[in-house]
Design a protein around this nucleic acid. Structure first.
Lengths: 296, 296
DNA sequence: TTAATTAATAATAAAATAGTATTATTTTGA
DNA sequence: TCAAAATAATACTATTTTATTATTAATTAA
């Protein structure tokens, strides 16, 4: 085969496969359209297969082309990860682990974890990215992150899941609210309060679980505010905009204007789970699972 | 980064990483040594890391270089697999599945399987390679084959294993041998016969299992011949060179000069297992596991 | 100490890629 | 229906990149 396939060809191909338009793809690649045409043709000749079916006007992926598109994306991303890791090795770092987490894990789980990690892996780089549940799953599948902390009960097949914290919910009330730990019996007592909850868009499954608490109590809450930060919830509660329900691990002692009541009698629990991609070959992940996660 | 990493660089790098010698590597690549030097230097500049530590005389991989070597081999092999599969798609074939198997699976398991496969996947190409147990494991890890049939009890972590046939052993005797189905009680009766067995190099664990049968019976057999083909065993037995023990599935009806006695009372069984690499993403493999293997 | 061997460098030759101008087709819209 | 616009391909030229040859500095072995 007189020619040799190069990464250049793969990248050019992906651009055309995404744009399905030679001129636009060429623009994106900062090269001329005829040059791109020729490189794609060369790639087709080298692989001895047709990537696109095109009739001077329409550009469409063939079956083989469509398959190559997804697999080459994956292969090139893998190469990037390899190189990134090699650079870290070169800098004297043992490895790196990219973590995703939902905001509610930052209160207690993640900070403790980070302390432990720094001790056990002094030469490993840990990067943290707050993302919602679904974003983490997507990022795991694309191998953009190595591990995640989510509040989900079900995950796709390629993703492994391990619960790390099963906890009760907590009521968040303003300090002056008539309901106290000792006169609280049911959430029904809050039927007339308005509720500040986490935005359902942030995590549908979490939101639905909270709604089931109200269902069981036999009323629909008035939801006046949606937010994605526990801090905002506390501020709103403190200023009498309403009351809230949060996972117990978000309970903080030193907040002045609010008080917490743990819903011990409510059967619904929220589970913070650790997730990772079964295909992920980051050597740090393996140790991480063995030394950290299994001891939580 | 003025330059762009290409597959050429990766292949050149692998050659030097394997030879640890620029001139020899250049020879292997059919290019000149200075050209190779420059390309490696270019790759180091592009990646911003040192691949080799070299002092005009000695060439050694750095830590990052050693890591890159194994991972790039894997990445390039993956790219090859992708392209191979795409070519098959282009030829109107749905997919391909490369199978390894130990010879003893060819008697009954593989032929039946192939018939079923041709029915269920008329547009898939199946390639068969007879290899011993260890070779199959190595080939699976290198993704040279997709699935295997082995007689092993333990496999490495990245390999999944599923038993498909647990069977008794069988004595193979010449037709004229005094021992018959009805006067046979223990293998001890064959203490003075010489034995023809499968070569221990072909599969140590299988050989050891057979030896345990003799241990339990309380004698050490005289092993006069080692072979790796059931057919050779039968020929040798037929011509009174000795007797043998084989898995029951190797029992064939229409062999003239030999007779079989199933060792029903012997607790040792031999297990033919189906194995595959957990990381393997061949779409045919997934269907194969669901539709064929789980129904065996 | 000399000869041989190694990887790197410099200069030049060869090859490959990219760009410009142009063309054959096809679509769009007046 | 016909002109204008837009698309991908082709031909040719310029530019860039890669490869080769000749040579050098450094190291080892005889």
């Amino acid at each position: 085969m007189g020619n040799q396939l190069e990464i250049r060809h793969l990248k050019y191909f992906l651009a055309v496969a995404e744009e399905l338009h030679y001129r636009k793809a060429a623009e994106r690649l900062y090269i001329s359209q005829p040059g791109l045409s020729r490189q794609i043709k060369q790639m087709e000749e080298d692989l001895q297969l047709q990537l696109f079916s095109r009739n001077n006007r329409k550009v469409e992926l063939t079956k083989a082309g469509a398959y190559l598109k997804t697999e080459i994306v994956r292969n090139l991303k893998n190469l990037d990860n390899i190189i990134e890791h090699a650079k870290l090795l070169h800098d004297g770092v043992e490895g790196n682990l990219k973590m995703g987490y939902v905001g509610s894990a930052m209160q207690k789980i993640i900070p403790n974890l980070l302390l432990k990690l720094k001790e056990v892996y002094p030469n490993t780089v840990f990067s943290l990215n707050e993302m919602n549940n679904q974003k983490q799953i997507d990022a795991l599948l694309a191998e953009d992150i190595d591990v995640g902390f989510v509040r989900l009960d079900r995950v796709p097949e390629r993703i492994a899941i391990k619960p790390v914290l099963i906890e009760n919910f907590c009521l968040v009330l303003p300090k002056a609210h008539p309901i106290e730990e000792n006169n609280f019996s049911s959430i029904k007592q809050l039927e007339n309060d308005s509720f500040i909850l986490f935005d359902p868009n942030y995590s549908i499954s979490y939101y639905e679980k909270v709604m089931r608490i109200f269902d069981d109590a036999g009323f629909s809450p008035t939801v006046t505010h949606n937010t994605i930060h526990a801090g905002s919830i506390y501020k709103l509660v403190e200023n009498n905009f309403g009351v809230s329900i949060v996972p117990r691990s978000l309970q903080v002692e030193h907040i002045k204007g609010v008080k917490f009541i743990e819903l011990k009698q409510v059967p619904h629990k929220t589970t913070l789970s650790f997730v990772w991609n079964k295909d992920n070959r980051n050597p740090i992940l393996k140790q991480f699972l063995k030394n950290i996660i299994n001891k939580m």
